[in-house]
Structures are given as C-alpha cells and as structure tokens.
Amino acid sequence: MSDRWSYYGKGLPYLPQEDWPGWLVVMEGADGAGRSTQNGLLKEWIEQQGLPVLDTGLKRSTLVSKEITKAKAGNLLGRTTLSLLYTTDLADQLENQMIPALRAGYVVLADRYIFTMMARDLARGASRSWLEQLFGFALKPDLVIYLRTSPEERLHRALDKHETLDFWESGMDLGLAADRYTSFLKYQALLQDHYERMASQYGFATLDGSDSPHQIHHHVRELATRTLKGGGLVAAT
C-alpha cells in the first residue's frame, strides 16, 4: 500500500493508499505478564517526549464488545463465533480508531493484537491457515513487544491479584483438567507454545517478563526509541 505501511494479508482493499505519519506499537503476552504496567509506563514516557498516544486493546470496540462480554459470561458461544466476534471487534477499532489516529500522527499503543487472538484460537484447535487469512486485514505494527513469562509465574501473579483463577484464563472450556489449577497450567503452557512460535514468525521483540518492572521498562524504552526514531521525531534520552 505504501512504503511505510503494509498488511498481513489482503488488507483493506477499499482504503486509499496513504502514508500515515503515526506509529503502531503492540504489547503482547499472556494475562499476568505485566502488559498493562508496561503500557502505562510507555505511554507516560512517549507523552513526555511530546507525542500523542492512543490507548487501545482487545474488546474495546463500541460495536460488539458488549455482546462478547455477555456471551462469555453465559458461555453461550461456539468457538468459531467467538473468534469472529473478537475479529469484528478488532477490525472495528482498527478502522474507526487506530487508522484515524495513525493518520493524525499518534503513537497507537495496542494492549494485545491479533497474536493473542491467534494463540487462544490455536489452543482451541482452530486452523492456522484460516486464522492467518482471517487476520489478513490487520496492519503490520512497527514494533511488537512480547513479554515472556512462565505459566507458573503467571499462576502466582493471578492468585496474588485476583485470589482466584479465571474460568477463561484457565481454559476451562477446553476440558484439559477437572480442576482450575491443573487446567490453568496446561492451558497457559499451550498458549506459551503458540506465542513462542509466533515470536519468530512475526519478529517479536522478546523481553523477559520476570525482570523487575523498572528493568523491563528500560528495555521497552530502548525498543520504542529505536522505532520512533525511524520516524525521525524523537530524541532518545
């Protein structure tokens, strides 16, 4: 489409080809990997540099997020339907929020992107080629930061934070184990495999999520500096 931007597949063929001045930075990693902490710090820092930031993430569209929440609460949906609803949600945000922000020169900071959706669906037996084509409308980010943590670490963090293991984060719908503890570890290990594979396929910048938030932020800043500098605007500190 342009020198600066491309899609993973067929893209959005009806959109005019333009060079949007903004940046798309994605923070990936399983729940409990410390994404929101890092996103918050990164946003703060980018704004200090003088660039505006748009915060986005999964399930935040005005279009279908309510329906997803409702359906998940009642465990009402088939797997394909849930995938497609999440995809609708992302496409809506991409076209109605992210691309307009990129056009306006924002740094779009996405708390998860197609990769988490793919990992979840792959763990549930979806076809890889189906998913890869489905997400062909997705814009390639300038930078994907992957916070790598072990399933055990995430387990302790989840218990610390919520005192309980969430039904979906434990992959209880998969029937991997009767109890949540075992199911959580098995499911999170499955997700891990898919993240690792994608890390090389899609060129993630992998960071060790077991480091201190401060250390991680330092690395995140380095990565962001390099990316944003490519646009010629930010002076590294």
Binding site: L12, Y14, T62, L63, V64, L77, G78, R79, T80, T81, S83, L84, L85, T87, T88, A91, D92, E95, N96, F137
Partner: peptide
C-alpha cells in the same frame, strides 16, 4: 451498528460472519 451506520465493508462482513457462525455452530 446499522442504525448508527458504524460499519465498514470489513466489519459489515465480519459481523455477518459472526451471526452466521453462531447459527451454524
């Protein structure tokens, strides 16, 4: 979505695919 005319060709397609998938499954 239709009432507020929020749909792009891609989301129009995906929301109908979701509807279909739900009935299908």
């Amino acid at each position: 979505a239709k009432k507020h005319r929020m749909l792009t060709p891609t989301t129009f397609s995906l929301i109908h695919a979701s509807d279909f998938a739900d009935r299908y499954e």
